[in-house]
Amino acid sequence: MLLTAGALRVAPLQGEMTLSFLGRIADGYGLTVRSLLSSVTEVAGQQGVVGALQGDSEVFLNAAARDRVAALCRVPHVGLRRALPTWTREEPPGPSKERPTARFRNGVETVAAWGPACPGCVAARTGRVAPARVYLAAHQRVCPRHRCWLMGVPGIEGRVVGLAGCPEVVQAQADHRRLMRRSPVAASAFQVAEAVTAWWWAQVWPEERLWAMRLEAAMPAGEDPQRWRILARDLVTYPETVALAALLASRVWRLRVAAGGGGHLPYRLADVPCVPSELGGTLGS
């Protein structure tokens, strides 16, 4: 009855995780997502759900299961395929192609980076305040409209952190997106920059004040300070990571470093004295 009725139309959010979308459908029918999947995959009293549902799970559906979900949510396949990045990414094997099958995948090895969808944007899009999870690239962590950081936290839905006290974090995402448009090496430069700022974060710098102030400004009321320091690293270091990535992606700067090293790969900062000075200028220190 549930599958044939299609009484509720539930549209996906752009970039939404398939499991999050199914969770919103289930909520509309007063079900758990596991119960919904049992119904979607049921044939002759047997369900085709494989794997364990965990806090970092994503679900993959075969074609037969996708047909049932499309009928249930009353959204054409083309719309689901356009909005949901993993809608057709994997065909979990079942006893036959005609039998609907769902498979849970867990962990960073198989599930791409994700975080909570901005609640304000979800409410504007759906007319309801409901939690949702979306895939987030490194340059999509900030909702500029509602000025919040969309923080993925392993094992839970994630955290939405207000950035009223950290306008530089909002600006950093605009800079990051501009860098992504202009430089073909921006993504790899950002990965290197993240590794560098993560190492800086792990050090003890008694004279450093900016990150400490940003950490405190973004901390939600009632949060444990020690836990928050672990969770907030990427947020706190984001402006400096973007600035460093822009420097690393600069062809002019890379040529200057090569010239300073005499055309050889430098092994020490002393080999390229321009690096510390330009880093200091870029990061304002």
Rank of each mutant, 00 (worst) to 15 (best):
C148P: 03
A124P: 00
A172S: 09
A83R: 08
G115K: 05
A172C: 08
C73D: 06
E98L: 15
C118I: 13
L136V: 13
H146K: 13
V169C: 06
E157S: 14
P167M: 02
A130H: 02
G115M: 09
A71V: 06
A70W: 12
H146R: 15
V111R: 13
L163C: 05
A130P: 00
L84K: 01
R74G: 07
L150K: 09
A138M: 11
P144Y: 10
P85Q: 13
H176T: 09
P92C: 08
Y135Q: 05
G127E: 05
R145A: 15
E90L: 15
E168P: 00
Y135E: 08
P116C: 07
A132I: 06
H139E: 08
T110Y: 13
R89S: 15
R145N: 12
V160M: 10
A71N: 06
A70S: 14
N62T: 08
E168V: 03
T101L: 09
A113M: 10
K97L: 15
E90Q: 14
A130W: 03
V161S: 03
C148Q: 11
G162F: 10
D67N: 08
R133G: 00
A117D: 05
G152D: 12
A70Q: 13
L84A: 05
G79L: 02
A123C: 04
R105N: 00
L84D: 05
R81D: 12
P93C: 14
L136M: 06
V129W: 05
A137R: 08
W87H: 04
P85L: 10
W149K: 13
T126E: 02
A174K: 14
A174T: 14
R133F: 00
V142T: 09
W149D: 04
C121F: 10
T86D: 15
V129K: 04
R81G: 01
A138D: 11
C118M: 04
F60C: 06
A164T: 10
A102W: 14
A70R: 12
P154E: 13
E98K: 08
E91T: 04
T88Y: 12
G155P: 00
Q173R: 11
F104P: 05
P167S: 02
